[in-house]
Design a binder for these strands. Structure first.
Lengths: 126, 126
DNA sequence: GTAGGAACTAGAGTCGGCTCTAGCACAAGC
DNA sequence: GCTTGTGCTAGAGCCGACTCTAGTTCCTAC
């Protein structure tokens, strides 16, 4: 039932290095247990938590804020409103970012069309 | 008709520092002319070019690639196919990124709903 | 002519987020 | 029992993209 750091790396897409780094940064709800020889032992829920963190990171949440969210979750009951607020704020930022990227996409698509038209014209002339 | 670096900063949203930095990085089609005292003099088309660069950067294109695009544009006629290819590649990356961010948004929205439901339940129980 | 703000240069510093190194311990398969 | 791979720690290094500093010069308005 326990997973090695390598197995967790495989299941989260994070590198072994990054997993240790995240642990140091307080991204894990609690540090994993250790085997006799000092090797980390992860549980399934650690993987789930990390996969959520991957989503948060992948959408641009900075590590300190992920740590804050983790701390709230670690504190347990009563912190739900704060957690909700944090997620909502991130959701809004993400919405804004999507809108901004959409505008960028429009500009780029327009540029692409300009070049396509130009080249179509140019090729036809030959 | 000429613009100072400060005016260009205002019109592009870039800082004066960043404008000089971009110039050093070869992001400008050609370095701006200089006034008698050595101050940079920008033309309107520099602002347009920079605004395109802002869009490219804002959508995640790294500076070396922007420089490459700039160099192609500087080389003039004949480089249009290469420019088109570069833009198309970026467009594809942007599409992928938008899709990825959309998936992140779905996960986060789901999380938000979980908390909302939980809190609604919790509040009703009081 | 002088004060204050804007611009100049070269180069150093910062920041976030990894990523890698060194040197060593442990473990699994033959 | 030995090799090969995986893991451990602490800490250094790297990368991209700015961002700022120091020391100086230039322009504008009084």
């Amino acid at each position: 039932m326990d997973l090695t750091i390598g197995q967790v790396a495989e299941r989260t897409g994070l590198s072994v290095h990054t997993l240790r780094f995240y642990e140091k940064e307080g991204v894990l709800a609690r540090p994993p247990r250790r085997a006799a020889g000092g090797h980390r032992l992860y549980a399934e829920h650690d993987v789930e938590w990390l996969n959520l963190c991957v989503v948060l990171r992948g959408s641009g949440m900075p590590l300190p804020e992920i740590r804050r969210y983790t701390e709230l979750a670690r504190s347990g009951a009563g912190t739900e409103p704060a957690r909700l607020e944090l997620l909502r704020a991130h959701q809004q930022r993400l919405r804004d970012q999507l809108a901004e990227l959409g505008r960028c996409m429009d500009v780029i698509t327009h540029k692409v069309h300009c070049y396509e038209d130009y080249l179509a014209q140019h090729d036809a002339a030959q």
